[in-house]
Simulated scan of single mutants.
Amino acid sequence: MNAVWQYYLDHRGDIDGWFGTTVWLAVLPVLIGLVIALPIGWAAWRYHWTYTPVTALAGLLYTIPSIALFLILPGILGTKILDPVNVAVALTLYTVALLVRVVADGLGSVSAETMAAASAMGFTGWQRLRKVQLPLAVPVIGAGLRVAAVSNVSLISVASVIGVTQLGQLFVDGNNLDKAAPIVLGLIIFFAMALLFDLLILLGVRVLTPWRRAVAAR
């Protein structure tokens, strides 16, 4: 571990800069992807005939290799191939693809009895969605969000293969220099980052579902 720490100290300026890029590439696509996936998932749940084609399309999108997507997007977006925006857009697409089914299934997991009770209380369709359905679907959506966040963290490193500078560069440097220290350092940082995001999402789900703690305490 001394060699790993020494490598960090020797390259601290570069690594700290890569860390900042990696963090926003990991966080922003998940947030934007969730915002986009919510209405699409709701539509897939609300209009049942769209569920199969929408989720099938999302699943197909998720199977596109990340390297291919990183290379295709510059031609579509008009960006340079080394622009981190390409990675952000690709990860956003993957997040949407993963969460669309999760959102639809989460909304569909709310029982008909619960929805009928909300209607009997005078809730409009929008109020039922906002005050009943979405809160009850939070655990399901949160589970999908955890998968998306951890998956995105691992996919970011792939972009270093085409030259996008972020913490994945540690793996490239380790391979080029035939040194284990940068590779081990990269593994530690990526693992810690994925674990932190996972814990933050778990905490968010816990905060948004206080009734689950009340039920468990009985």
Results as ranks from 00 to 15, higher is better:
residue 41 G to S: 10
residue 100 V to F: 11
residue 47 Y to W: 15
residue 97 A to N: 13
residue 52 T to F: 05
residue 37 A to K: 11
residue 72 I to E: 03
residue 103 V to A: 11
residue 24 W to R: 15
residue 108 G to I: 04
residue 99 L to Y: 06
residue 22 T to C: 01
residue 28 L to M: 12
residue 53 P to W: 06
residue 59 G to H: 05
residue 41 G to N: 04
residue 31 L to E: 09
residue 103 V to P: 13
residue 97 A to C: 07
residue 113 E to Y: 01
residue 80 K to S: 14
residue 23 V to I: 15
residue 61 L to H: 01
residue 55 T to I: 11
residue 77 L to G: 09
residue 34 L to E: 04
residue 45 W to N: 09
residue 86 N to Y: 10
residue 63 T to W: 01
residue 49 W to Q: 13
residue 67 I to Y: 06
residue 53 P to C: 08
residue 69 L to H: 08
residue 27 V to A: 08
residue 97 A to D: 13
residue 30 V to L: 15
residue 108 G to F: 02
residue 25 L to Q: 14
residue 102 V to Q: 15
residue 39 P to Q: 10
residue 66 S to Y: 06
residue 51 Y to D: 11
residue 53 P to N: 06
residue 64 I to R: 02
residue 23 V to K: 06
residue 78 G to I: 01
residue 65 P to W: 00
residue 85 V to T: 15
residue 67 I to D: 01
residue 91 L to Q: 09
residue 105 D to R: 07
residue 114 T to Q: 14
residue 108 G to P: 10
residue 52 T to R: 13
residue 54 V to G: 01
residue 49 W to V: 14
residue 51 Y to W: 03
residue 63 T to P: 02
residue 22 T to V: 09
residue 35 V to N: 08
residue 51 Y to H: 10
residue 39 P to I: 08
residue 57 L to C: 12
residue 66 S to P: 00
residue 92 T to K: 04
residue 114 T to E: 10
residue 84 P to M: 11
residue 42 W to Y: 15
residue 95 T to G: 09
residue 100 V to I: 12
residue 52 T to C: 00
residue 54 V to Y: 03
residue 31 L to A: 15
residue 95 T to W: 03
residue 108 G to L: 07
residue 52 T to M: 07
residue 86 N to R: 13
residue 104 A to T: 09
residue 22 T to W: 02
residue 55 T to N: 12
residue 81 I to K: 04
residue 26 A to C: 12
residue 90 A to V: 08
residue 56 A to S: 15
residue 66 S to W: 00
residue 96 V to C: 07
residue 60 L to D: 05
residue 90 A to P: 00
residue 104 A to V: 05
residue 53 P to R: 09
residue 93 L to S: 06
residue 100 V to Q: 07
residue 106 G to A: 06
